[in-house]
């Protein structure tokens, strides 16, 4: 467990060095969210009743989406993982007395938590105090905030487990750029990164909500903004746990297979 602690520490120190990067990230997320909200404002004033979320729920959804943007992104700069796979220095990794899956999984998670803490949480100090309807409203019940946090942790697990599958696929397909771009597009869209899944057409939504991607972002955000309540929250978390288990098992098995292949090839 100490190992995982130091992975996190190294990431944090590393992240702290880049002050202007963190500041840039905050500004970018702020303006991105603001532009989205201005666009939604225009849409809502054009046709008020046609949306399955209220404007203020949408605003909360968009802000939280921006705050946790890096946390739930599947493709981020896990630089050394990519280079380890690409340059075949995997042999060095195998001589270490730590499970490679565990190490990479934790590294992926830490690699998302650290930039979120440094570059996005500061947004939380701004957005609740914005004037007028752009303001993010916090949930009124403490219980909902707690459920949101639990759902976020599950979502991060699903994201990291899915990212692991992507890394492992790179042992087989030597097209990092192609895979990254496809994975980014698909996960972003189906997890509510582009528009809340509530705005999908109803029939499509019924399916999309059950895919692993919804568990990566949309569920905690819906709990946060209050469009998912009561038993829906329970079932949502069940789906998250289900996907987390499936992806972890699949990833672990795939890793075993991939490493055997590497050893056979003498990588």
């Amino acid at each position: 467990m100490r190992v995982y602690g130091s992975i996190f520490r190294i990431r944090l120190i590393n992240g702290l060095q880049y002050r202007s990067v963190a500041l840039g990230e905050v500004l970018m997320r702020f303006f991105w969210g603001l532009m989205e909200i201005l666009a939604y404002a225009a849409l809502f004033r054009t046709g008020q009743g046609n949306f399955s979320m209220t404007f203020s729920q949408t605003v909360s959804y968009v802000w939280m989406q921006q705050v946790l943007f890096v946390l739930f992104r599947v493709v981020v700069g896990d630089g050394d993982i990519y280079s380890t796979i690409e340059e075949g220095s995997i042999a060095y990794e195998l001589v270490r007395p730590v499970s490679l899956y565990g190490r990479w999984f934790f590294q992926s998670a830490a690699g998302r938590v650290v930039p979120t803490v440094l570059g996005s949480l500061p947004l939380l100090l701004i957005v609740p105090f914005l004037p007028g309807s752009c303001r993010m409203i916090f949930p009124s019940q403490a219980g909902r905030i707690l459920l949101f946090v639990v759902s976020c942790v599950l979502a991060l697990g699903v994201v990291a487990a899915f990212a692991m599958l992507m890394y492992i696929s790179l042992f087989y397909l030597t097209s990092q750029r192609g895979i990254k771009i496809i994975v980014t597009a698909v996960t972003h869209f189906f997890s509510g990164g582009m528009i809340p899944l509530r705005f999908f057409p109803d029939r499509a939504r019924a399916v999309v909500q059950c895919l692993p991607f919804a568990s990566m972002r949309d569920m905690p955000l819906q709990i946060w903004c209050g469009t998912m309540t009561g038993p829906e929250v329970f079932w949502g978390m069940m789906i998250q746990i289900f996907w987390l288990a499936v992806l972890l098992l699949a990833g672990y098995a795939a890793m075993e297979h991939a490493l055997k292949r590497v050893v056979v090839q003498g990588g």
């Binding site: 520490r9 702290l16 002050r19």
Partner: peptide, 16 residues
């Protein structure tokens, strides 16, 4: 200038 250690990293966030 970069110095090792967590404390210095935090400090560098504010003044460099």
């Amino acid at each position: 200038r970069r110095e090792a250690g967590f404390g210095n990293a935090v400090k560098a966030l504010f003044s460099r």
